[in-house]
Design a protein around this nucleic acid. Structure first.
Length: 426
RNA sequence: GUGGAUGUAGCUCAAUGGUAGAGCGCCUGACUGUGGAUCAGGUGGUUGAGGGUUCGACCCCCUUCAUCCACCCCA
């Protein structure tokens, strides 16, 4: 094999079967987003590094971005996330946009990290945000969007769940344990790591953070209290609306979900595979200060992001992806009987395309067996044969590649016949 | 950035330091107007790359590259 240039670390090639998955995710995200009236947007893939400076001290920019100098000497980065671009788009037209505003986006992002399961350096992400309204019902809408997406892909409530918590509720509860406000973010971080550490190490970490044994005990009881959300009127309203939106079976309260990012201000949520085999599928929450932080007027917002990698793994695990055989989008194979009859085959293929079929023409007059094998391996549904016998009667032979049954019929009837076959399977 | 594994045929994997193999796939034929099944035959490799030790290296040592996993962080 001649020397090949490997793909850049952390990137991947999308072969047809991979592309089919990516397209499926995009189309599902689109359907779900649009069903709630969200509009599609996008920002540039290249941004100035300054755009991300507003979120000061961000590891995301410092260590995890692809940064390079352009020919004019400016520092350019491949966007590591959408939110700053989105915040800028809002700030630029803040006075003329219509609120509440519902935007969604799907596109590539880049982060310079060590690749591993469910994480690469180039990845696709669904972003969706409801901007300009601060209500528990808005939070519920985003949670319902996430749940609707899961349902749309075929995942069940036994396989995946949206886990919901609220940072203001946690603030109140921490204060009740006499945990001072300045320790809040540290304790949030402690909570975030609950499932990632052994109980012993976690206890040690808690002591390190400065919790007393009484506080630690209180925190532990808090984290297993599934009824804690009744203390939050916000969450009570949110959960009530989630029921009304018909996705209650996909959603539950989870006091240990807190999110790593500091900018969340209220309700937060994540989607998890219930086996815990993968990292989180999706994450989001309310962030009421972010637009202001990038130079706009204060504007409340709630949203989430879902990367394409983990959800693909989850869908594969639960057999929610189309079979390889179903990937070909041309169900009809037009075979070529002989060099002399090739034009007749191509002509019939053209007529069928005009009728709305996707038709593959075999490009040479190979042995019919070889042509059928090709159609079979490509997952095609029917093969058409135009030989001397058929042509003499103005017929065409139609072979069902699944059953193997074949029949000859007038050319004028073939379109309707194929509709009958493919219509049932698509 | 830290730590741990793994690189052998197109794919999944074998092979005490002593002639690199199997299954699947692929090609051809049995089948001159017909795929999947079966059978027969065939194609298959600079053992990731480079160096070292050895009479002899897929195997041991060093370097390097790649991939995977965990940490970190997050989608």
């Amino acid at each position: 094999m001649p020397t090949t240039i490997n793909p850049i670390k952390g990137t991947r090639d999308y072969y047809p079967e991979d592309m089919a998955v990516r397209t499926l995710l995009y189309q599902t995200a689109r359907e779900v987003s649009e069903s709630f009236g969200y509009q599609e947007i996008d920002g540039p893939f290249l941004e100035s590094i300054d755009l991300y400076a507003a979120k000061s001290g961000e590891e995301l920019v410092k260590d995890q971005s692809f940064v390079f100098e352009d020919r004019g000497g400016d520092l350019i980065t491949l966007r590591p996330e959408l939110t700053p671009s989105l915040a800028r788009m809002v700030a630029q037209r803040q006075k003329q946009l219509v609120y509440p505003m519902r935007w969604w986006s799907w596109g590539p992002f880049w982060r310079y990290e060590r690749p591993q399961k469910g994480r690469s350096r180039e990845f696709f992400q669904w972003n969706i945000d409801l901007i300009g309204v601060d209500s528990p019902e808005a939070d519920a809408e985003l949670i319902a969007l996430a749940a609707s997406f899961l349902r749309e892909t075929g995942l069940t409530p036994n396989q995946v769940q949206v886990l919901v918590n609220n940072r203001r509720l946690m603030d109140t509860e921490l204060l009740a344990l006499d945990i001072p406000a300045e320790k809040r973010l540290q304790v949030f971080r402690l909570i975030d790591r609950r499932d990632k550490m052994s109980p012993v190490n976690w206890d040690a970490y808690a002591v390190e953070v400065g919790l007393t044994s009484r506080q630690l005990y209180g925190l532990k009881s808090m984290l297993v209290d599934e009824g804690l959300w009744h203390k939050s009127s916000e969450l009570e309203r949110t959960f009530q609306v989630i029921e009304a939106l018909g996705v209650g079976d996909y959603v539950r309260f989870a006091p240990h979900v807190i999110r790593g990012l500091d900018y969340y201000t209220g309700t937060v949520f994540e989607v998890w595979d219930l086996d815990g085999e993968f990292r989180s599928i999706l994450g989001g929450g309310r962030y009421d200060s972010l637009v202001e932080a990038v130079g706009g007027d204060p504007l409340p917002a709630v949203g989430f992001a879902m990367g394409g990698s983990v959800i693909s793994l989850v869908l594969k695990k639960y057999d929610c992806l189309p079979a390889d055989e179903a990937i070909i989008n041309a169900p009809v194979l037009m075979t070529v009987f002989s060099q002399e009859l090739l034009p007749a085959s191509f002509k019939l293929a053209t007529e069928l395309r005009s009728s709305g079929f996707n038709v593959v023409c075999y490009p040479i007059a190979a042995k019919l067996g070889k042509q059928f094998k090709f159609g079979d391996r490509m997952g095609m549904r029917v093969a058409l044969i135009l030989g001397p016998d058929e042509l003499s009667q103005n017929h065409v032979a139609v072979k069902d590649l699944l059953s193997g049954e074949q029949q000859s019929m007038p050319i004028a009837e073939v379109a309707e016949f194929i509709w009958g076959l493919t219509g049932n399977t698509c």
